[in-house]
Design a protein around this nucleic acid. Structure first.
Length: 444
RNA sequence: GUGGGUGUAGCUCAGUCGGUAGAGCACCUGGUUGUGGUCCAGGAAGUCGCGGGUUCAAGUCCCGUCACUCACCCCA
């Protein structure tokens, strides 16, 4: 008995068969289209990076528990990238001399984290990253917020399906030190408690805060402040607000793009000001979809230049879950539009010739790779999603014609070889009209 | 790292009181010459997750293990 190797993909990674790949590709292409319509340019980088670029600024959990690491033959310590931001900061720093700042960049890298797979989380995912580098203007925040609206709109989501909640690390620090009157040494620990605020019972939060050294009075003040939401903005000293990118956005028309919410914190250490997170509003998928923020010091790890950045990462797993929850997933694309079927094996050459002219006419066309009975081939063509087959028979061909059969309308016509492209196209258009006419789909 | 659920054909699952495996769908072939979806007939396809134990006998009982999955932790 031979011992076979496993066919399942490595834990937490996925194979994408053509139908799933088609769905993913269609979603991505819409998103790329939106990004490029706003002048974002695509870049890419290596999946392997020196481990140090994560040790410096990513969250501690990522580095200590979730990094895939390896040592190369030269003894260099490397990691599979768990996220793209450190890489893009490195690329920006290394090429700053030839770039015209500010730049708008995007990418769609696969990223790896060693963790336990569950809904919405795997070990390898693809994450669209969109970032702006080289500007401290709050216009960058507005650009990113508008981009998020456009991207979600571009994949069919309506504004009631999601919420864009924003905060600012500068404002949060002020809330914690000026309003709650915490010592600065507690900032990090208490920020983490704020991050978990919605997910835990009050007693648990109080206990954790107490363990850090937060007094009951301070905790109550914190709870009261967070419950007040945006009202806290008025209490924050104006000198602080001048240092907050987000505060500047919130006094413009663009304030309507977001909801200020002091409970938004996010786990990465490198965020310095604006932070934001998009949530699904559906009760069935009530979760954070993606998020990002401003990181003004990350490029500074690589060079003396001060190049601020702001951006976000949108992962494919949560995005596909979101689209599925709201019934927004596109249908997989059919294999081909047309299959050209020779009735006899020795008509394969004519069939390929007809197929070539159909492709020249812009139609996705295939021919059978193995000879089978005509009926079988029509079945296969139908299952492949072709709406038209072209039948190349001996008598027709000798007389300079072929037969086109529309699998949707069942209409069948004999046409001259010269006009086959136009005839198939007309047949496809007719079938499409029949479908939309009968379906009565809403226009929006 | 912690806890729960589930592992039988490609898929969804059944399998009684232990007696060495079934259905539906899908797939392939045929129902005579160049016409699909229905119908009919036939066919192929299973290390019952894996290892051990109990037993004359294990898909079934016991132990272990692995995988998948959901949740926690944390986060995207």
């Amino acid at each position: 008995m031979p011992e076979y190797l496993p066919t399942t993909p490595y834990r937490g990674t996925r194979d994408f068969l053509p139908p799933e790949m088609s769905v993913r590709t269609q979603v991505y292409e819409r998103l790329y289209g939106v990004l490029e319509s706003r002048g974002f340019q695509r870049y890419d980088g290596p999946v392997l990076e020196p481990i140090e670029i994560y040790e410096a600024k990513s969250s501690r959990e990522i580095v200590e528990q979730q990094l895939y690491t390896l040592t190369d033959r030269g003894g260099r310590r490397l990691a599979l990238r768990p996220e793209m931001t450190p890489s893009v900061a490195r690329i920006i720093a290394g090429n700053a001399g030839k770039l015209q700042f500010p730049v708008r960049w995007y990418s769609n890298p696969n990223c790896h984290r060693y963790e336990r797979p569950q809904r919405g989380r795997v070990r390898e995912h693809w994450q669209i990253n969109a970032d702006i580098f080289g500007s401290e203007s709050p216009s960058c925040e507005i650009e990113i917020f508008e981009l998020i609206h456009d991207m979600l709109g571009g994949i069919g989501a309506t504004p009631d399906m999601w919420r864009l909640r924003v905060s600012d690390r500068v404002l949060l620090s002020s809330i914690l030190t000026d309003i709650v009157e915490l010592d600065e040494s507690l900032l990090r620990g208490v920020s983490s408690i704020v991050d978990r605020w919605e997910k835990y019972p009050r007693e648990k939060l109080a206990e954790d805060a107490g363990a850090l050294g937060v007094t009951d009075k301070q905790f109550d003040r914190l709870a009261e402040t967070l419950a007040g939401g945006a009202a806290v903005l008025d209490e924050i000293p104006s000198a602080v607000r001048e240092n907050s990118q987000l505060a500047k956005v919130l006094v413009t028309d663009a304030a309507g793009l977001v909801e200020f919410d002091p409970m938004i914190v996010r786990g990465f250490d490198y965020y310095t000001s604006t932070v934001f997170e998009v949530f699904d509003t559906s009760p069935e998928n009530n979760r954070s979809l993606f998020g990002g923020g401003r990181y003004d010091n990350l490029v500074g790890l690589y060079s003396a230049q001060k190049i601020p950045g702001i951006g976000f990462g949108m992962g494919d797993v949560t995005l596909i879950d979101f689209l599925g929850t709201h019934g927004l997933l596109p249908e997989p694309l059919a294999e081909v539009d047309v299959v050209v079927i020779p009735v006899e094996a020795d008509l394969a050459d004519p069939a390929r010739s007809v197929a070539r002219s159909l492709r020249a006419a812009g139609l996705r066309t295939s021919t059978p790779l193995e000879p089978r009975k005509l009926g079988k081939e029509i079945t296969r063509a139908d299952k492949a999603g072709a709406r038209v087959v072209v039948i190349v028979g001996r008598e027709d061909w000798d007389g300079g014609s072929v037969t086109i059969r529309n699998l949707v309308t069942k209409q069948q016509d004999q046409v001259s070889v010269d006009s086959v492209g136009a005839a198939v196209r007309a047949s496809l258009d007719q079938a499409a009209e029949d479908v939309t006419g009968a379906g009565g789909a809403p226009s929006s």
